[in-house]
């Protein structure tokens, strides 16, 4: 979307860091200096290998974790700023989350009505019992379930149904922004499409904005307007979905793309796979300079000494790689 430059962003993330203190006085930099913006009504896809910090980033955005450093502005308000409890509650109501594990994300001991109404109860959105039940039934129908399910317990539902209950629970407080943390990874392929379609329908009907987390580019390709690629706690590339697939710039994105099979068997056979070499380094002791250099086919001495800058190298196309760096960085890469 070209006009995005003019729109006011809904979410602004600036230099966000989230470090964990792990044993032995070591620090695990789960999210390290990430900056990006999410615009109203768009779906922002966030991809990266397991353990690269996607969930931590998502959870820090809604202050489930406190930020170690950096800022998150939601609709101009600082999520991590000092606020009274009520102010914070009012702000975080507008940001909700859908979780990865359809089994762990619902309390087994509560029935579906109480699960879905939890947010309504917390924010006092239903005036009385009858209104509460009515809203729950509406929400159940919105996500393709029905009134008969309200008194049931989570274990009676399939994974896909549970995930829809989780969606209804998030919708109950009427949010503007939903962080979907791998909402379909744990589901059967046949059910994945159902849930994705539901999310897209809801987005159209309610003007929702999504941060859609996935560990696989093919999952976010069709639903995202823009995609951010994460590696070991940092963002390495950010572009519109089309640009990213047509012209991936970062060697890591290129590697991820060539890992996706092509549906055409002839093309698939000729496809050159650019496999990632080596293992994912530990986020406790990440490589110096560019974090990706240990697995990058183009890495040079320069990558070891200097971390690449996060630069907008084409309109709306950001990348952190010396190959697309300043004149001097590019010269150093050739040397």
């Amino acid at each position: 979307m070209a006009e995005q430059g003019k729109k006011k962003p809904l979410v602004q993330v600036e230099g966000l860091k989230r470090h964990f203190q792990v044993g032995g006085g070591k620090t695990l930099k789960a999210v390290d200096d990430v900056s990006f913006e999410i615009y109203p009504g768009e779906t922002f896809g966030l991809v990266g290998e397991s353990g690269c910090g996607k969930s931590t980033l998502g959870r820090t955005l809604i202050r489930l974790y406190d930020a170690t450093d950096g800022k998150v502005l939601f609709d101009g308000e600082d999520v991590h700023g000092t606020k009274s409890k009520t102010e914070l509650k009012a702000l975080t109501r507008r940001i909700q989350m859908i979780f990865q594990d359809p089994y762990a994300s619902l309390n087994q001991r509560m029935n579906v009505e109480d699960i879905i109404a939890e947010g309504m109860d917390a924010h006092g959105l239903a005036k009385n019992r009858a209104e509460r039940t009515k809203r729950v039934v509406e929400l159940l129908e919105t996500v393709g379930l029905n009134a008969e399910h309200a008194k049931r317990f989570p274990h009676e539902f399939s994974g896909g149904q549970r995930q829809r209950i989780g969606i209804a629970r998030a919708l109950a407080v009427d949010p503007d922004f939903i962080i979907a943390d791998e909402p379909i990874s744990a589901l059967d392929v046949s059910i994945q499409a159902q849930v994705v379609n539901l999310l897209q329908k809801l987005q159209r009907e309610r003007g929702l904005t999504y941060l859609f987390i996935a560990h696989d580019l093919s999952m976010v390709k069709h639903i995202s307007d823009r995609i951010g690629v994460m590696y070991l706690g940092g963002m390495v590339e950010l572009a519109t979905s089309d640009d990213l697939f047509e012209e991936p710039l970062h060697p890591y994105t290129q590697a991820l793309l060539t890992a996706i099979p092509i549906p055409d068997p002839r093309l698939e056979r000729e496809r050159k796979r650019q496999l990632l070499q080596g293992d994912l380094p530990s986020p406790i002791d990440p490589p110096s300079g560019c974090r990706f250099r240990t697995r990058c086919p183009f890495a040079t001495e320069h990558c070891k000494n200097k971390a690449p800058e996060w630069r907008e190298v084409r309109p709306n196309h950001w990348v952190a790689c010396h190959l697309y760096g300043s004149e001097s960085d590019r010269a150093a890469m050739k040397a």
């Binding site: 489930l64 940001i95 994300s105 619902l106 939890e118 924010h123 629970r169």
Partner: peptide
């Protein structure tokens, strides 16, 4: 650490609740 407790927190449920 379970996701349903994280969900409760994002929904605004108080610690006592």
């Amino acid at each position: 650490q379970q996701e349903f407790v994280l969900a409760a927190r994002t929904l605004g449920t108080s610690n006592t609740q």
